[in-house]
Design a protein around this nucleic acid. Structure first.
Lengths: 147, 147
DNA sequence: GTTACAATTGAAACAAGTTATCAATAAGCA
DNA sequence: TGCTTATTGATAACTTGTTTCAATTGTAAC
């Protein structure tokens, strides 16, 4: 996982200013293993930057997502959650027990995506994969009742 | 693709009433190849059922999604679009040119998901895969400029 | 260290999505 | 046909997301 300073460098290198709002959002995301909604990010961010505006949170999340530093987490009922990201094309394991998010690169997916593109005559430009289930910790806590 | 009558049967079999609102939403979805937002579904649905309420559209979409008859389509900026579904666990190719949506089952993904589960000690219960790109038609129209 | 400038902000307003309420309606069964 | 209960639709309220714009701020240049 990249340090905050490295993430800040990504911002600079991409030509964006390193503002207090953006650093606050980055920091809040860096400090959690799971998903956060925008309101939570905003509230936590205000502890670091009291004037942090709600709109700035949305703007920062959008920018950070574009840069591969944050990511929307999608679910059946919407996609109002965010998590930090380590790769722009990373994929997620989202634990339905504790909410923990585990990112993974997936070369296996790249091959599958290529194969699907050929099979359906579709030029894939972007792919999104998310897996939901239970992490090892929640499985152990469950007493192995999971499938 | 299932006929409207077959979809209606899915509703009945699941213990839900076959109401005019639900049939209107199903019909609107069945009549398009692409994604629709809720306002569009509502407007089109009112042509079939003039009293169709906005909230009933959201309710119907949620239920139909649970039953595998409709589906949220996720994107980088949110998931405010819907498409018809043929499978509950189907996956999508979403064309960024014409907006057409192509659903596909994916046994290859199931194997990959199993492998990922083992690798990360994660009991996968649900997975979401979406691919964005250009369909064959849009590729041809582009003059093969795609990657 | 100061200045200038453009990016960025934050508040307010607006739009879209979601939830809740509830009286009225309607689907479906007997 | 009547009854029961699921469902509706209107309304309101709330949450989430976007737009506008004057004010602020980050940073480069000097």
């Amino acid at each position: 996982m990249r340090t905050l300073e490295q993430q800040v460098q990504v911002l600079r290198a991409a030509g964006y200013r390193v503002t207090q709002s953006r650093v606050a959002v980055l920091t809040v995301l860096a400090e959690t293993d799971g998903v956060l909604d925008a309101a939570t990010i905003c509230a936590a961010g205000r502890e670091l930057h009291p004037k942090l505006g709600r709109v700035s949170v949305y703007r920062a999340l959008e920018l950070l997502a574009e840069l591969g530093l944050a990511r929307r987490v999608h679910g059946a009922n919407g996609c109002r959650s965010y998590a930090r990201a380590n790769w722009q094309e990373g994929h997620y394991l989202v634990c339905q027990g504790c909410g923990q998010v585990q990112e993974f690169p997936c070369d296996g997916l790249d091959r599958l995506v290529e194969q699907l593109g050929r099979e359906y005559r579709f030029a894939v430009r972007h792919h999104l994969l998310q897996l939901e289930g239970l992490c090892a910790g929640c499985l152990d806590a469950d007493g192995g009742s999971a499938s």
